[in-house]
Design a protein around this nucleic acid. Sequence first.
DNA 1: AGACAATAATGAACGTTGTTCAGGAAATAA
DNA 2: TTATTTCCTGAACAACGTTCATTATTGTCT
Lengths: 199, 199
Amino acid sequence: MRNNREEQREGLKTRLIDAAEARIAAAGLNGLKARDITADAGCALGALYTAFDDLDRLILHVNSRTLARLGAALQAAVLPGQGPRAVMAALAQGYVSFALGNFRLWAALFTHRLPEGIEAPAWHRDEHAVLIAQIIAPLGQLRPDLEGAALRQRALTVFAAVHGVVMLALTARFVATPRDQLPGEVAALVEAMTRGLAE
Amino acid sequence: MRNNREEQREGLKTRLIDAAEARIAAAGLNGLKARDITADAGCALGALYTAFDDLDRLILHVNSRTLARLGAALQAAVLPGQGPRAVMAALAQGYVSFALGNFRLWAALFTHRLPEGIEAPAWHRDEHAVLIAQIIAPLGQLRPDLEGAALRQRALTVFAAVHGVVMLALTARFVATPRDQLPGEVAALVEAMTRGLAE
DNA sequence: AGACAATAATGAACGTTGTTCAGGAAATAA
DNA sequence: TTATTTCCTGAACAACGTTCATTATTGTCT
């Protein structure tokens, strides 16, 4: 067998990511323990460190999956033939739905922190493009004066604003937006932004 | 001496909060260790647990100080006689300045998480009111149709939007807003929101 | 002042983490 | 088969937050 070795290795990696994903979904990032993961994956504790450099790298792979699913969800949220404001509104509601329906995995995208001074690998950083990719086109229609880097930058700001509202509503330790009011507040924000942007 | 005992106790608490605050400012929440704190405060490891229930409670007191300073900074950012949009813009820029100038302590306000299911005490939750207190008046002028809880709720949304942009710019692991562009992006967001809100 | 009681501080020890590493098992090559 | 390379194992390690029996300190009463 030519690639039996590599196949087994990939199989182990996949089982570890599966187990970590399930644990995060069930108990959050704080509830993620190396010993639980390896027990679920059916391997020894040390095996985790033959497959990944450390736990942070494994979490990166879980987040990678979540980003892919989020990207697909956002793509599905937009209907063809919608005007730019309707697209923005649909994207925002799609984001809210995903966050509510995948709370702990979605939260892990933003609460996981690498040790200071250590950067995420480029392949993973690039995956975050799905967060703003779909905003660029409708924003460009509302703001024809923006192009290239400036347009991309403003799309990131629009995303960050919506994200901030969702994040604070779902994870705040102080007076938070009730969950049933979240879609309405996000809609109002996006409407105000798009109206203000279009002038 | 009547209250010598209590004075000493308060003195220890203060030294512990001082030490924890300095450690967070220097190395972030992740760099905060009980042994470092007690060494800096000049007491034994166990003393920390005679003054506070646990490390989380100590961090709460550090965050309490930060919130007070943030509230003062926001108050100082607003000049008398400004119109509602100018007030909103000034508050946003004040928030950006505080986050940049007190990065790790500011970040600790939002990255610190209590164990799941455990709520922050009421006295600390109430302190977060400074985040939205100053937004309510100018927002009420821009939106006379909003009152009471609805106005308060919308102010929280406006804060969360600005906060999201700042947070993502300063702590993002992916393509982030460059720091020198942050004030401009925040200004554009607030302007779009206030313009969209006004009519 | 002196003796007793109540309280607080000490630091060694505990349990739980992530991570490592010498040894053994398994797969490939000869 | 035998040799060699590769990977997996799980006991051991270091660092962490937290606890607790012991010691020291403070306040109170005679």
